[in-house]
Simulated scan of single mutants.
Amino acid sequence: MISPSHIAIIMDGNGRWGLKKYNNRNKGHYYGLLNINKVIEHCIKIKIKYLTLYTFSTENWNRPKKEIDYLFFLFKYFYKKNFNKLNKNNIKIKFIGDLKNIPKDLKIIIKKIEDKTKNNDAITVIFAFNYGAKSELVNAFKNIIKNKTKVNEINEELINNYLYTNNIPDPDILIRTGGEKRLSNFLLWQLSYAELFFINKNWPDFNFFDLKKVIKAFGVTKRKFGGLNE
């Protein structure tokens, strides 16, 4: 049975969960945030080395300002409430995305988190924050051109080196909660050979047993990468 080293998750369904339980989308975002801690702990238990969480997309700016402000407030709350515990548990934290356009106070927090956890190695948790796969690729191609790369030097390895995920292995598994079946502009390059699991549960209800089921299903999958398994 094979084990994954990198799991990526689209944490969908928070707002719907909040509306159903409390008639309040923000309540769903709050409980979804609490579930992040649990899932990180679950991943450490089963020895996952990388976990990437789709936290805020470039398209999320189209949501109502009140909801965006609350999401940013939750990020600051998560940092204040959990940082010491995450650091103590040897968790390395990275952020990927276009961080130039986010509020200055969030940039300062992100830099502190990355600096203080850079030597931790129990698991690397990657927050995709103000992230969009198409803008990541556009950014990569602009930088390739800026560096005056010759056409015959452009290959997959070179493009990988210009992505936000440089030096991070591609995900083995993508999990999307919330019942939807789409990638929503998430890691389009990196997920080219990931196994996809769509869970008919909203993110706040996703638990250890759901994660174990996915790992078990992955473990018996024959990954051919375009070839044949005779």
Score class of each variant (00 low, 15 high):
S135M: 10
D98P: 06
N82R: 13
F225A: 08
G97C: 04
I10T: 08
K222V: 10
F206Y: 14
T117F: 14
I91R: 13
N84H: 09
K107A: 06
K216S: 03
K118I: 09
Y162D: 00
C43M: 13
F78G: 02
F197I: 02
D115R: 13
Y70R: 11
D105H: 15
N120C: 14
K212F: 11
D205N: 00
N147W: 00
N207E: 14
N26H: 13
S184A: 07
K142S: 07
N229C: 05
K76M: 07
L191P: 11
L53A: 14
N167R: 11
T58G: 04
R176N: 10
N35P: 04
F225S: 13
W61V: 07
G132E: 13
E195C: 01
N23Q: 15
F127P: 09
L158N: 08
V151E: 09
N202F: 13
K47G: 09
H6Y: 10
I44G: 09
N120H: 06
E41P: 02
Y22P: 01
F225V: 03
D121G: 12
F198M: 02
L33T: 14
P64M: 05
K142C: 05
G15I: 04
I40N: 13
I102A: 05
E156C: 03
T55V: 03
P204Y: 05
N82A: 08
D210M: 10
